[in-house]
Design a protein around this nucleic acid. Structure first.
Lengths: 194, 194
DNA sequence: ACCTGAACACCGTTCAAGT
DNA sequence: ACCTGAACACCGTTCAAGT
């Protein structure tokens, strides 16, 4: 074991904005949004809570803004082999997975917080449709329709599934993966090129 | 002025669960969810915060559960003159208005909190479609698709509009009412009876 | 430049006490 | 039964101080 010269006395990595975001997301994913506090985040980073303010001067607000950007930004690629419809379906499935993996930040997504966070994602959806031959005006409507649908559908999923799995008397449990796919086809069916 | 006999010494109406919910919703609508605290709610009701716990033993959690139920529950009527499609469009516009009026509770809607809150609304949508001749399986998918779409689309609206009206350089401001209507038609276009 | 420690003004909630 | 008042364990954040 060769000791590095001039290693930090406490032997810990320097505090960076990226490490703060990553650690915050880890807390939200594992314990829920309510348990994300500056003091707990400081503990996780082995630092006093107040040290965070040196990297995020606007404090917790700025931290939450970063979480929204981190989870909500996911541009769609230009339409490829599967055609624009197939490309959008793949994007929707991937975006759904992202939202489900970070369901704790979903409440932050339906707020005015960080208005620019979803702008890039929306713009890429419009461009994807435009390149697929969908006229400009329809593309704008379809982009809002698709992104809104995915967010709202995941909200319904989270609402129904998270928590203890209790057998309901009447109805069988919903296969959300299949349900989402079917609803997605229904939504995209209404979009016509030209 | 005839004085009522046995009037309350403090001359205030008795504290009820309904008055608590109503007052809480008023705070959320006017000042935002973050400013809804048990102490402020007590002030608004001219009561000590701790008095609320006598009506809502589970405290703030139970209060928020009530807000979700109050805003999220809005069954669709059976299909009438305008046909099932027209009925669903009217319902969607009304539900959108409801959500926009109480945008502060939207973050609570995309949580596992009060899982039963939207069950009645969803069931009424399924029944509406079923009565309109849409087969059972398609109706279930379409109900999730429609409710998810409305919630998600309102989320995008809130995200874009709330806050200071700043003129963006490139794009003109979105007419959200029209955009929602167009996207709604697009979503419903995919639903076919029989 | 980067982090700490104490302090301030808040929270939600409990618990014994009042009427 | 219904409400109060004090208390407890937390919050986010400021600010002067350390290195």
């Amino acid at each position: 074991m060769v000791r590095q010269p001039s290693i930090n006395a406490q032997n810990r990595p320097p505090l960076t904005t990226d490490r703060i975001i990553e650690s915050a997301l880890h807390i939200v994913d594992g314990q829920g949004l309510a348990r994300l506090t500056m003091r707990r985040l400081g503990d996780a980073l082995e630092v006093e809570a107040m040290a965070i303010y040196h990297h995020l001067p606007r404090g917790k607000e700025q931290l939450l803004d970063h979480l929204v950007a981190h989870v909500g930004a996911m541009p769609a690629d230009a339409p490829g082999g599967g055609g624009w419809r197939g490309g959008l379906m793949a994007w929707a499935h991937a975006y759904r997975t992202r939202l489900l993996d970070h369901a704790g930040v979903l409440p932050l997504l339906v707020t005015h917080r960080n208005p620019a966070a979803l702008a890039g994602t929306l713009a890429s959806l419009r461009e994807h449709l435009r390149l697929g031959g969908v006229p400009e005006r329809t593309a704008a409507v379809a982009a809002h329709s698709l992104l809104g649908f995915v967010i709202g559908h995941v909200a319904l999923e989270v609402r129904d599934t998270r928590g203890d799995v209790r057998a309901e008397p009447g109805e069988p449990p919903v296969d959300w993966e299949a349900r989402f796919g079917a609803a997605l086809e229904l939504v995209l069916a209404g979009v016509n090129p030209g």
